[in-house]
Amino acid sequence: MKHPNRDEWAPYVFGEATGVEARRLEAHLESCAECAAEVAGWRRSLKMLDSWSVPATPRARNVITPVFRWAVAAAVVLAAGVAAGRMTAPDAKAMRADVEASVKSAVTAEFQQALARSEARLAAAAEENSRDLLRTFSETMEGAREEDKQAMLAFVQEQQRQVDARMIALRRDMETLAVTADQEFRQAKFTMTQLAARGNE
């Protein structure tokens, strides 16, 4: 009996052989105990391979996926809400005109108020500034005047001291002169007395 080539069996065993090939090989197996035993052995081996399983590693995605699902669900609900709102909305043009007008007037009023507030603030600030300047000027002037006064007083006191010193010196001179004159007068008187006595003698 002519056996099929060995490599013909691989596609057959894994179910990849074409219909014609598969029928031919099956017919051979029915008539050839040797090939049938070999193929049966192969099938048993393949079945036994299934006993060795490699467990899957736990993955972080299992934790993330529910969050992602919730996020998508929330997005869908939001989109549905927006769509429903748009569909049931009143005339958009009229509403826009109303809104524009009211917004415009509100903005104008607000702007004017803000302008008035700014002006008042500016005026108050200017007044305050002027007052400060005046105060500073007067303080400066007062300080200068006080300095002048002090200087003048010091000058007068110095002059007074000098005059007093001169007067004291003059008086001392006068007294000296008087004492000298008195002595000389006494001496003259004594001399005259002696002369008078001598004349009487």
Partner: peptide, 16 residues
């Protein structure tokens, strides 16, 4: 590939 597979199955069967 087919011939390697046939050989692989034959060897594996001999082992098992």
């Amino acid at each position: 590939v087919n011939s390697r597979m046939a050989e692989a199955l034959a060897k594996l069967t001999r082992l098992l």
